[in-house]
Nucleic acid binder design. Sequence first.
DNA 1: AGCCGGATTGGGAGCGCTCCCAATCCGATG
DNA 2: CATCGGATTGGGAGCGCTCCCAATCCGGCT
Lengths: 345, 345
Amino acid sequence: MSRAEKDPEVRGSARPTLEAVAARAGVGRGTVSRVVNGSAGVSARARAAVEKAIAELGYVPNRAARTLVTSRTDAVALVIPEAETRLVAEPYFSDTIRGVTAGLADTDMQLLLILVRTAKERERLAAYLSAQRVDGVLLVSVHEDDPLPTLLETLDLPAVLGGRRSDREPLSYVHADNASGARAAVEHLLGRGRRAVATITGPLDMEVARARLDGYRAAHGAARPDEALVAHADFTEEGGARAMRELLERRPGLDAVFAASDVMAAGAMQVLREAGLRVPRDVAVVGFDDSIVARHTDPPMTSVRQPIEEMGRTMAHMLLDEIAHPGLPHRHVALATELVVRESS
Amino acid sequence: MSRAEKDPEVRGSARPTLEAVAARAGVGRGTVSRVVNGSAGVSARARAAVEKAIAELGYVPNRAARTLVTSRTDAVALVIPEAETRLVAEPYFSDTIRGVTAGLADTDMQLLLILVRTAKERERLAAYLSAQRVDGVLLVSVHEDDPLPTLLETLDLPAVLGGRRSDREPLSYVHADNASGARAAVEHLLGRGRRAVATITGPLDMEVARARLDGYRAAHGAARPDEALVAHADFTEEGGARAMRELLERRPGLDAVFAASDVMAAGAMQVLREAGLRVPRDVAVVGFDDSIVARHTDPPMTSVRQPIEEMGRTMAHMLLDEIAHPGLPHRHVALATELVVRESS
DNA sequence: AGCCGGATTGGGAGCGCTCCCAATCCGATG
DNA sequence: CATCGGATTGGGAGCGCTCCCAATCCGGCT
């Protein structure tokens, strides 16, 4: 039998309250509260007495009581569409979380993780967020038609997006400079003498996918690239494979492919191999994300690295700012990408 | 200027309270509370009136107020040592989270994600958990000397571990049947005629690593395997490579390797290739985890799959049980693994 | 008609904290 | 020595909810 069952005092009610600390320190509740919250206007003597009492009693403030009166929750939510956790290049997920956690580390903000899987859950989430249970929201992997950002806007709840819906995104966001990254990748291919550089895009209802396609086009300068060299996919390996087959059928002479994700690039490499084409000899391949997949393909894949962990950290910092200063105008941050050259190009 | 600034009523205080619902429905607070919490003893008439009022007002209970009086928080924490998010095979992290989320889906439990990075943070966490801010704790990737499980025990806080510290683990846990999985892998190699099967272990202060090593030994039956065929590493790719070099030096004639993780196996395959040995012709390789890495090595790797998402789901369910029924004896659940045969063996 | 007991109901008390104001203290000033 | 004002302090009020008990209601029975 657990101690808690025998003696209800052990868990819960036994914990010292503000009042107990006040009594022990021989001061009033107000003074203890001031010390705990670091407000000014407490004499050194009183402060010392309170701190001593706190230490002796092992006092920890009751968060619920505080929330009840201040209506701050000291919690932020990280909302991730469930589907993304499967599709997106693997480390994306953990890197984001790691970054966000790091950004929150010196705060005593709690991180609530919310995976949204179904439309039903999405609705529940709306109710949830409306109910003020968090001080702010981080939202990653937004699609263009995602209703959540709009909801956050109307709720006037501090929020920072990872990525943006379009280039006119009103909410604060952090994203990688996808267009430049893609452009650098394609320029790299062209610079190595490739002539017919194809691309495999992500789903075009995501701005990341569009931006990478734009970068691909921009790399061609005034010379509009052959539209038959553009194939659309969905960030999955199978999608990448399918797109590669299409491309080979349409333009058998292509000599390079830029895929908007490593996973798609891996699918493409598979198809190339099956078609008897060698990488990079016959067809050079560049991916995007520099995920773990890129390092393990054969040959190892050239890829565009995005600083995902830093993005998470930045998002967290921006959110804390917005929470602390509600009037703040929204901010838009783009972080640089970096081309990591390996043997596939 | 945001609406909230102009009109403080918009955010927060404007939300209807229990009292408001009661007034609107023409009943007392108690009745509304009973309806909201689904307790019995409410007439159909009253219930209908209350439900109508709730819908009209868009009432959502204030969690903090409820927590304050019940001292339930309706939140559980998932604690992950930060280091693991880097080392462990990538999808582990997201699969676990996905599983836990799924297991919590029909509840209105919140999931708090806590990444512990430093010893300092670990201490803070102790204070945090002692402060009753969650109803229960999920703890993954425990090391033998981890002080947290013991803390949870003394706090008498509902907890479920992912993995166990030893085979005498008192706390509830869910783990994969590592020994059987490893055994199956090695038997598979022996069954294909391999004679000198080496193994690369994980850090032996983790029970998973020990269990997989035990499985390796068990597969050899009465015939104790040559101890020179056992090399220790740390679940990293570099560690796997280093161990492989050691093994090749000690026993150049080995014809198979079972690594306790895919990532280590990938490192080993790299070394084998550099040594001019072909996989699987000269040396067969089997990994553990069946992570994304296994599918992308060259050749694709045979690996032992563990049902990580299901483990997460099971952990969540068990925790909910322990929270609901505090007296419950601790439970230990082992989930079966499965050998996925690919070209590396 | 009067009474009984179970079903239903209302609302006081109180959870632990912050906010805020009135009270007190104390050194400095005239 | 009286007065003044800023610094410090104590504690009432109240946040929104659940718990619980006393009060009320009502159908059935004598």
